[in-house]
Simulated assay, not measured.
Amino acid sequence: MLFSRVLLGCMSVFCMVAGLVTMPNLIHAQNTENPYRVQRSHTSEPQDMLSRLRLLAETGDGDACYTLGAKYINGDGLPQDYNKGVQWLKLAAEKNNAFAQFDLARVYLVGFGEFKKNKKTAYFWANLAAAHDTLSPRELDKAMKLRNLVEDELTEDEVNSTQSAATDWLERHKANMP
């Protein structure tokens, strides 16, 4: 009986943060402005649409990179490949895509595929996602909660150095700001 209560208590705590770190359904774009918005389907997408998406992603379109990464991670129209998906998310994050930055923070918070758990890297990407004014209030709240969750697990020096790195990153990437 005691074991059951302890187990239920642990499950409750887990469920409170599960919305921030649930895997493998990592990606679910909510950006209604994104013309490449991810919509999980049970059928394969026509190859010409995927080809166009890949071409846009390869030319550096941040939204296309994000969507292609999401499709690889979710196995939506493409063979599921977490590592390729995260690589595309990284490219999108470098283009200052807030959704990719948020999802990368989640990837590094728990470790995913070949990408090992790294709380400083998770905090870095969560800081950048939380700095966006392009997110809806709900999405911004999620990004801030994730940032605060990770911050609580870092030392003061780690927090300060990571915040400084995020500030430097923002200065270098001003050209990619929406």
Rank of each mutant, 00 (worst) to 15 (best):
L170F: 05
R5H: 10
L128M: 05
D152P: 00
L128Y: 02
E114F: 07
E151C: 10
V6K: 13
K142D: 12
F102M: 09
M16S: 11
N160S: 14
V21Q: 12
Y36F: 10
E171G: 09
K95D: 08
G111Y: 07
L26F: 08
S44Q: 14
N25Y: 13
M177A: 15
M49F: 10
V86L: 09
Q87V: 08
M144C: 10
E156F: 14
L89Y: 01
L170M: 15
K174F: 06
A18Y: 10
L53C: 05
M11C: 12
L135S: 04
M144S: 12
V159R: 15
D103S: 08
W125S: 00
R106T: 06
D63Y: 02
M23H: 11
A131L: 05
A143V: 00
E139G: 06
L140C: 04
C15D: 11
A92H: 05
L91K: 15
L20Y: 09
A93L: 01
F3D: 15
E151Q: 15
C65W: 05
P46L: 08
T22S: 14
T59V: 07
E45S: 07
K120T: 11
H173L: 07
Q101P: 05
L109W: 02
D103W: 04
G69F: 03
G62M: 03
L20F: 11
L128K: 00
G60C: 06
S41H: 04
N83R: 08
N25H: 14
C65K: 05
A29P: 02
F14D: 03
Q101C: 01
R172G: 01
H42I: 06
E58S: 15
D133I: 07
E33M: 10
F102Q: 07
E151A: 13
I27K: 01
T22F: 13
A130S: 15
A57P: 01
F124S: 01
K90Q: 12
L8A: 13
A175M: 03
M16V: 11
L78F: 05
K117W: 03
N96L: 00
S51Q: 15
A175H: 03
D152H: 15
K90E: 09
I73Q: 04
C10G: 15
T32F: 10
Q163Y: 09
E114M: 14
V107E: 04
A92Q: 04
E139M: 11
L89K: 01
E158C: 10
L68Y: 04
K71E: 06
T59C: 06
E156H: 11
A98T: 01
Q101I: 00
R54G: 04
R106W: 04
M144H: 12
L26K: 01
T155N: 14
V21Y: 08
A29H: 02
E156V: 13
N118C: 05
K142R: 13
L109Y: 09
Y66P: 00
E94Q: 09
R138S: 12
V6P: 00
N31D: 13
A98C: 03
L104N: 00
A126N: 02
Q80V: 10
W169S: 03
N83V: 10
A126W: 06
A129T: 00
E156I: 13
V17E: 09
V21R: 08
A70F: 01
G113A: 09
P46M: 07
N160E: 15
A165M: 12
E153C: 09
L8R: 14
A93N: 04
